[in-house]
């Protein structure tokens, strides 16, 4: 049953992406990309990952607001240029290569519904699930993983966010800083 629902949602996501690629109007493109974010949130919820579902939903709403309000303001931007033929060929070649490798890799995955860590008893996720509450005291295992076991990852994520804000501030600054007069 859950596979059918996920299949339907994935179909809508693919349709939305294709419409987003093919439409000429930027506002329509942004509205057409919405199902990709929302339905992936619903899929995360169906698969039993509420943490990621909350993050996906909230970030989707925020990015939609930022895209519509901040980048497209009063004037509607339309795209009239033809698509680059060489770029299209390269994209399809990459998709083909990726597809071959993905088919090879997907053969080693466990069947749908059985967790991936059951294949290997020594996998780290086994330890997180069995001893997570005992070792960290956090009832939410996801939080104990991202902030205790894998704190470095979160530190790197925070650094990336910080640096991106710094870059946006530096690029989008309109007034140049004045030089000192005695120079």
């Amino acid at each position: 049953m859950i596979e059918i629902i996920i299949g339907i949602l994935l179909t809508f996501m693919i349709i939305g992406s294709i419409i987003c690629l093919e439409t000429k109007d930027l506002l329509s493109a942004i509205i057409a990309i919405v199902p990709v974010g929302y339905f992936s949130g619903i899929i995360f919820l169906l698969l039993g990952a509420p943490d990621i579902a909350i993050t996906q939903m909230v970030v989707e709403v925020l990015s939609l607001i930022i895209l519509i309000r901040a980048t497209i303001r009063r004037d509607l931007t339309t795209i009239e240029e033809e698509r680059d033929f060489f770029g299209l060929i390269t994209t399809f070649a990459f998709i083909f290569v990726f597809f071959i490798f993905a088919m090879e890799a997907l053969r080693y995955l466990p069947p749908f519904g059985s967790p991936a860590f059951t294949l290997n008893q020594n996998a780290p996720s086994n330890r997180y699930l069995l001893n997570g509450l005992k070792e960290t005291g956090a009832a939410n295992i996801v939080n104990s993983v991202i902030l205790d076991y894998r704190g470095y990852d979160t530190l790197g994520e925070a650094t990336i966010l910080f640096t991106s804000i710094l870059g946006a501030l530096a690029i989008l600054r309109v007034y140049a800083r004045k030089r000192k007069k005695n120079e």
């Binding site: 993050t55 909230v58 607001i65 930022i66 939410n140 991202i146």
Partner: peptide, 25 residues
């Protein structure tokens, strides 16, 4: 309550930002 229930720092922070964006809009 990020360490007890689904959630955590990142989604909560995004909700904080959404509050101020709502006020701005």
């Amino acid at each position: 309550f990020g360490h007890l229930s689904p959630g955590g720092g990142f989604p909560g922070g995004v909700v904080f930002a959404a509050t101020f964006i709502l006020i701005t809009l």
